[in-house]
Structure formats: C-alpha cells, structure tokens
Design a protein around this nucleic acid. Structure first.
Lengths: 194, 194
DNA sequence: CACAAACTTGAACGATCGTTCAAATAATAT
DNA sequence: ATATTATTTGAACGATCGTTCAAGTTTGTG
C-alpha cells in the first residue's frame, strides 16, 4: 500500500492563506488545485469536500492563534506587557501589503447569515480567546475587573482588525488604543503630546 | 413612451437587505430576481450588472448611515449624549434575530483581497463617518482630543459590529464600552457594581 | 386609432462552480 | 517478481453563475 505522497500540513497552510485572503465563497476549488499543486481527486480523497478542507484550515488557524497568544503572555514580564506587545504586533501587521484581518472574524461575518457550523466554530473560538485573556488578567486583577477588561480588550482587538483596512491608520489606532486602554503599561507616552 | 413600472427605491432597499445579509459573492442575481420580483432583463436594463446594483445599494446604505448619525447628534442635548444613544442603539441592534453587522464593514472585509472599487468606497465612507464624529466632538473638545476620541470611538464601534455576533454579548459589550469610553456621559452606572 | 418608444418577459447562453470516477501509477506485502 | 492495495490523474458531469436578447406588452404621442 502507498502512503500519502503530499504534505498534508503544507496543503492546509496554503488553504489557510487562500481562504483567509478571499473568504470561503470567493475561493474556488480550482484555486486550491492551483495553489496546492494537487489534483481535484487527491483533495477530495483527503478532505472530502470544500467544506472539509475549509474546516481543517480554520481549525488549524484557530489553534495557532491561541498558541501564539499563550506564548506571548507566558514569556512577557507581566500580562500587561504581553498584551501591549500583542496589540503592537496587530497594529504593525496592518502595514503588510496583503493585510487580511483575522480569519475567524472574516469567517464569522461572511457566513453568519447561513448560521452554519463555521460560524458557530468561529464564534466559539473567539469566545475562547476572550476567555484566554480573561484568565491571564485574573492573575493580576480581581475577577470582576478581569472580566470587564477582557471585554474591553476584545472590543479593541476587533476594532483594530477592522480599522486596519483604513488608510494610514496605524498612528490613529495607537492613539485610540492608548485612549481606550489606559490601564495597560504602554512602553512610553508618545513624546511631545498633551 | 412607457415609464419605469417598478419602484427603483424599493428594489434598491431589497437589494441592500440581500447584499448586506449575504455579502456580494453569496448573493446571486437569481435571489435578486426572487426578492425584487423583477425579471433579469429589467434589472440589467436599470442597473447594468450585478456590480451596478451592488454599487447603488452600498451607496444608499452609506448615505442613510451618515444621515442617521447626523440626525441623532443634532437632536441630542449634547454630543456625548448623542453618541451614547447611538452606541446603545448598536448594542440593542445586536439582539435582532437577523443581526447583520455593518454593510460597509462586511463589504470591506469580503472584498479587500480584490482591492476593487467597493473596497475603496467602503473605506472612504467609514473614514467619512470617523470624520463626522470628529467634527461633532470638536464642538466640545479641542482639536487634538477630538481626533483621539474619534479614533477611540471608531475602534469601539468596529468592535461592537464584530462582538455583536458573540452569544449573549450585550452586557459584556456595555461593560467594555463603559471601560473604554469613560469620558462619555453614560446615563447611569449599572446598579450594585464596583 | 395607429404608431413608436419604453419597458418587461423568460428562455437560453457560455463560463465556472464543486464534485466524481474509471483508468493509470506508485508503493507495499507475499 | 507478482499481486494487491493506496494514491494520483484529469477529463467530464450536472448545477448554477451572471448575462443577453428577440419577442411580447404596455404606455405616451399625434
């Protein structure tokens, strides 16, 4: 018997890129064929359907996203510092030429009307990320404040993931983040201001 | 010569509903035919293409959105009160069974990868809305603070438009908004809390 | 009423969609 | 080496996509 000849992980990675960029509906299986180098039959044998491939891509993206947050917060001198670093990365990310917001958010907005499994999954994962932040904040603040600040933080993160599409938005985003999240230990006040 | 027999405005309104709900790609012209009652030929004579109809729908949505903001802020006792009322409406809106976020934001996220005219239009309109808030805030705050608070407000609005898809999110959103926008004259502190 | 212009109709078009499957090929077991 | 099984191939399928257009109908004009 022959083993799988292709690197499943690489196929999933390239599918993440495609689906993340264009969304579910605007990504065709023919683009998948082109981007992965696999033939239709191989894809369908391995993933069953377009939905199957999308599911695996979305799950992998969510897994990596949470892993990334945990790593950052675990390695930071304080939770606040870690969150500042994460927010700063998000703002920096908006400068990339092919900025793509967040795969989970895009999936939720695109597929909300159909209320399908992907919408539910994305919602659950985003809720999981809020819970992740809350649990970290709970190490430094009381339960009530942790909950409130996690909510406020999520509002800002969602905001950044949309605001990033605006032209020359990085400076305004940073200002807005400082305004709305004054309890975070921002590296330094922007010089010569108020 | 015969005049147009159908109500163009009604067709645009129904197209807004369809496109807003499902997005550009997931809305088919056959659904438009079904929802408007018009035949394909009539639609193409009046709007030229799917893009043409979408353009008119998006433009009308943007026009009404800005009008709605102006009305609210003009009729409020203060800018802050008006903004609170608008935010409260957005939070309330998330309880509707067919909540659809914001047509401009959804369009931007869906069509960003193609960098087409609709993406540019949506971005410009959202920038216009931020400018609208800034100009109103400038009546009560100095230029620098108005700019910062308009940015912070937009981050929160974008945040609400995404966060609203989360289950039972209204209470957490309200908390998050109070946390992040403490300079607004919120009607009353939630009772029996901190 | 007759004519012309405006508008509606809806079957049909080519393109592309997601998907299938019989045949070819490659890898393993005997 | 041979048989068997796993995998790949890629042409082709039916469905649906956005769109067209010749024919039919309605409306305004003279």
């Amino acid at each position: 018997m022959a083993k799988a000849q292709f690197d499943r992980n690489q196929v999933v990675e390239r599918s993440i890129k495609l689906f993340w960029q264009n969304g579910f509906n605007a990504s065709s299986m023919q683009q998948v064929v082109k981007n992965t180098g696999l033939q239709p039959g191989s894809i369908y044998l391995a993933f069953g359907s377009k939905e199957g491939l999308f599911r695996e891509a979305l799950e992998e993206y969510a897994r990596k996203s949470k892993e990334c947050i945990r790593k950052r917060l675990d390695s930071a001198p304080s939770i606040g510092d870690g969150i500042c670093a994460l927010l700063d990365e998000m703002v920096e990310d908006s400068l990339r030429r092919n900025y793509c917001s967040c795969f989970l958010i895009k999936t939720q907005l695109e597929l909300a009307a159909q209320r399908n499994e992907f919408y539910d999954f994305a919602a659950a994962q985003l809720a999981g990320i809020e819970e992740l932040y809350r649990s970290y904040l709970a190490r430094e603040f009381d339960a009530d404040l942790s909950r409130k600040r996690a909510s406020s933080l999520m509002l800002h993160i969602f905001g950044v993931k949309v605001y990033s599409y605006q032209r020359d938005s990085t400076a305004r985003m940073r200002e807005g983040l400082h305004e709305g999240l004054p309890w975070l230990p921002w590296p330094q006040q922007q010089p010569g201001n108020v």
